[in-house]
């Protein structure tokens, strides 16, 4: 879901930087008021954890593999605002230190993955889970549904951001100057890919990790 540099025009990536800035501000403010000194290392290690789980190849039927982002999972384990910070840091570190993912597109990537995916995924998880106990099946199922919905919403937003480029930026002869695919192609391409393959991977992995933690360390499921 990472958008590289060059696909989005300045109004779009600038707008998404502006859109994600208040999210970071709110997340930083909320985390700072609740974050005790003892939790700083936890947030740092969770950011490293987010980075590492994106590197796992998850097997899918048919012999191929895919990747999970773990956004909803991190939100369930850390709380949504801490997850926004942890995943944003992961995206920034990936872009600057490892040269992976766009720099001008950091705002867009954080908006889609660290904000929309996390908040929607976690919101749906909380809504379905209600007040059921940590070790219940309902917690696992709501985690899976939240993860599926979160990543699919993130993919939808990525499709919209890419799909509006041909309408916003055209040369004098009508040629698109950035991503050339209109909304009617970019949105279905992104949503179908994530709804059919990556969303299912995300849901399965979130559910299985929650089952593992329910058995081994249920106290870690705090969200």
């Amino acid at each position: 879901m990472h958008i590289p540099d060059g696909y989005l025009g300045p109004i779009t990536y600038g707008g998404l930087w502006a859109a994600v800035a208040p999210v970071w501000y709110t997340a930083a403010k909320r985390v700072k008021t609740t974050l005790k000194a003892a939790q700083v290392p936890l947030l740092a290690l969770s950011s490293a954890f987010s980075f590492v789980i994106m590197m796992f190849n998850v097997p899918i039927p048919g012999g191929t593999t895919g990747h999970a982002t773990g956004a909803t999972l991190v939100a369930i384990l850390l709380g949504p605002w801490s997850a926004v910070i942890a995943i944003s840091i992961t995206i920034v570190v990936q872009a600057f230190i490892f040269g992976d993912g766009g720099i001008t597109a950091i705002g867009a990537n954080c908006f889609n993955m660290a904000f929309a995916d996390v908040i929607m995924g976690y919101g749906i998880y909380k809504l379905i889970r209600g007040s059921s106990p940590t070790t219940s099946k309902r917690t696992v199922i709501s985690g899976a549904i939240g993860a599926y919905a979160g990543i699919t919403i993130g993919a939808f937003l990525t499709g919209v951001e890419l799909g509006i480029q041909p309408y916003l930026y055209k040369g004098p002869d009508g040629r698109p100057l950035y991503s050339p695919f209109p909304l009617s192609i970019a949105v279905p391409a992104m949503v179908i890919e994530y709804a059919v393959v990556f969303g299912i991977i995300e849901a399965v992995i979130t559910a299985l990790v929650l089952i593992y933690l329910q058995r081994s360390n249920p106290e870690l499921i705090r969200g």
Partner: peptide, 23 residues
């Protein structure tokens, strides 16, 4: 898939423990 999930779960537990030691 179970193995991958168990490793991810283990990594989170490890991160949690490490963060306490680190603090």
């Amino acid at each position: 898939q179970r193995w991958v999930a168990s490793r991810m779960g283990f990594l989170f537990s490890l991160s949690y423990r490490l963060s306490e030691d680190l603090y």
